[in-house]
Design a protein around this nucleic acid. Structure first.
Length: 582
RNA sequence: GCGUUCGUAGCUCAGCUGGAUAGAGCGACGGACUUCGAAUCCGUAGGUCGGGGGUUCGACUCCCUCCGGACGCACCA
């Protein structure tokens, strides 16, 4: 489909150029000046060139230009050019296009491309703290990062997914201190709790501790100092609690299908970057302030000053990130490094990227902050202090249970075999789709009930369409219907109803490409929903397996199979399980 | 105060980077199961695209300005 568009762009720009020469006009008629879009209605054609811009130069009305072009291009293909008002629209040869689309889309990798072949992209996401379990906000980060990674890979990029575990700092010490006070040496196993929740509960209990002990905050600070000094007792406890937290978090990753190629631990790298700052001081990128701290003047980007090393020489968050970025580029030279981090840190990244540029790293321009918005609830904002944070595991459990109830209510347990497993996958599809369908940069409201709804723009709806098609194909394979007596005939797909599906299948690879270029999985999500709903309409109105005519049955089943292939591929990119039945 | 960002149907979101009559879903109302799974489908109502200027043949889209929300503006991470 894409090459057809490119061909027509060249054809039309050349025709415009020829027209200009004949009229003795000097007009720049390059392909770049041509806009090609999709007409709002299928009966207007498959693609169209608006001709308004050429009006002045040619001293002709756009409709006249359209007519002149259509005459000039009579007989030129692929398809036919027609003047429709101020537009030159292209009507494709549906049977011919259907033939190639059906052929391509019946192959496994359909939707993948090489548009990013040869590029190495590092992507950092999730980056949890080890003092509490994952919550709804993390789920957005995780599915965004994982999905973008998969989309980039589908476009041919070499991707390295990394996770920076935030395993040190005062917040970690707080849960440790709380455990020292209330834990009594107990383990997650003792209490029968998922280990990250076990740790998180002590972090919450720190609030109680503060009530009981006014010096709690100071003691936490003190614990941090002892940790940095390598105090054996502190380190030992830290290791235990950290392991509990991390292993629990990894369990949730497994549950949601998130994975990483490499883990970085803040405890191991928090001292890096100091040398780099010294180098910057030496070459004049930074300066030493009167109080002895090392700073950078950010006036070139309209900001103030930023401290990079405290007067006592200790480093801060920024220092660490400078060192880490350089370290990573040495480790694995990338063409692009994407940080999937909430939008509240956009200032941090703006400064970080600028600093790296000032330090003279030309690759600094290849750093990108994939900023995403907060997830709120219909009831309002999630607040840690008010205990309104939605725990990721609990949310998935609730949705899974609701889905299971629905399966039971429909009496489909028998047909499914492992109903609990299906319910879990529906829950996952519900959450992931809901989180991914909104534009990443915007804040969003997550409505759990709505996400699980089986009709509307949801994950389960798309899963359901996939299951229905799968069901049909199973029946064909068992010999039901007349399809096996028929031939697949693409010419039967030229009617509006079928063509609607063909063009969506044809456009799918471009959606994947666009999603990759924009780092926006929502593009794929929207495409899948459109496809699913178009298919739903189609099979409601038209018999497929049960067509009386064998050729029609065979052809429509082939079309359904292609729809299914696209869904499978697309849902895979969005971390949503494809279901054969539900 | 400064910076970034968002404001589209009652609610949740799209809108192909400036083009054809601004679209979906939910909710509301009304329809469709002796037929491939009704966890579905169809129809109706609902809009001054936050307000006002400007650029353009053409603006939800670009510029300015005001209003409203969010987030930042640490020697926290």
């Amino acid at each position: 489909m894409k090459h057809i568009r490119e061909t027509w762009k060249v054809t039309v720009s050349e025709a415009l150029g020829a027209m200009a020469r004949e009229k003795g006009l000097d007009i720049a008629t390059t392909v770049d000046n041509l806009v090609l879009e999709t007409p709002p209605k299928p009966e207007m054609g498959d693609m169209g060139f608006p001709l308004f811009v050429w009006s002045k130069a040619f001293r002709m009305g756009p409709p006249q230009i359209a007519i002149a072009l259509a005459e000039r291009l009579a007989g030129v293909g692929p398809g036919t050019a027609k003047a429709i008002g101020p537009y030159l629209n292209i009507f494709l040869d549906r049977a011919a296009v259907a033939r190639t689309v059906l052929d391509k889309s019946s192959r496994p990798g359909y939707g993948s491309s090489g548009s990013l072949a040869g590029t190495r992209i590092m992507i950092e996401f999730s980056s949890p703290n080890t003092n509490k379990p994952l919550h709804l906000g993390h789920l957005r980060n995780d599915v965004l990062g994982e999905s973008v990674s998969r989309i980039l890979r589908a476009n041919g990029a070499e991707v390295l997914k990394i996770n920076l575990i935030n395993d040190r700092g005062v917040h970690i010490c707080k849960s440790m201190l709380s455990y020292m006070a209330y834990g009594g040496g107990r383990t997650p196993q003792d209490e029968g709790k998922k280990s990250d929740h076990f740790v998180g509960d002590y972090y919450v209990k720190f609030n109680e501790l503060k009530m009981a002990d006014e010096a709690a905050e100071e003691k936490a600070q003190d614990l941090l100092v002892r940790w940095e000094a390598g105090d054996a007792q502190v380190i030992d406890l830290w290791k235990h609690m950290n392991e509990w937290a991390v292993s629990g978090i990894k369990t949730t990753y497994e549950r949601t299908g998130i994975s990483f190629d490499k883990y970085y631990y803040e405890s191991q790298i928090y001292l890096t970057g100091k040398e780099e700052v010294q180098k910057g001081l030496a070459n004049g990128a930074f300066f030493k302030a009167e109080d002895g701290s090392v700073r950078i003047d950010l006036s070139p980007i309209g900001l103030d000053e930023k401290v990079l090393l405290r007067k006592d020489g200790t480093s801060i968050y920024m220092t660490q990130d400078i060192g880490l970025a350089i370290h990573r580029h040495d480790d694995w030279p990338f063409d692009r490094l994407i940080y999937v981090v909430a939008n509240e840190q956009q200032y941090h990244f703006k400064v970080l990227f600028h600093i790296l540029e000032r330090l003279g790293y030309e690759w600094a321009k290849n750093l990108y902050h994939l900023s995403y918005g907060l997830v709120n609830l219909p009831e309002g904002r999630m607040k840690t202090r008010e205990g309104t944070v939605v725990d990721a595991d609990a949310l998935l459990d609730t949705l899974r249970d609701t889905a299971l109830e629905e399966i039971q209510a429909k009496g489909r347990e028998e047909a499914l075999g492992d109903a609990a497993d299906i319910a879990e996958k529906v829950a996952l599809g519900a959450v992931h789709y809901y989180l991914i369908q909104a534009t990443p940069s915007k804040d969003m409201i997550f409505n759990p009930q709505e996400s699980l709804s089986f009709n509307g723009d949801t994950g389960p709806y798309i899963q359901y369409m996939g299951a229905r098609i799968s069901s049909m194909l199973r029946k064909r394979d068992k010999g039901e219907g007349k399809a096996s007596d028929g031939l697949v005939r693409p010419d039967l797909l030229a009617k509006d109803a079928e063509w609607e599906l063909v063009r969506r299948i044809a456009a799918y690879p471009e959606a994947v490409e666009q999603a990759g270029a924009e780092y926006n999985p929502a593009v794929v999500a929207a495409h899948l929903y459109d496809l699913a709903s178009a298919f739903s309409r189609f099979y409601h109105d038209n018999p497929i397996l049960n067509s009386d005519d064998p050729d029609t049955a065979a052809t429509r089943l082939a079309l359904a199979d292609s729809v299914r292939n696209v869904m499978k591929h697309g849902l895979g990119l969005l971390c949503i399980p494809f279901l054969e039945a539900m």
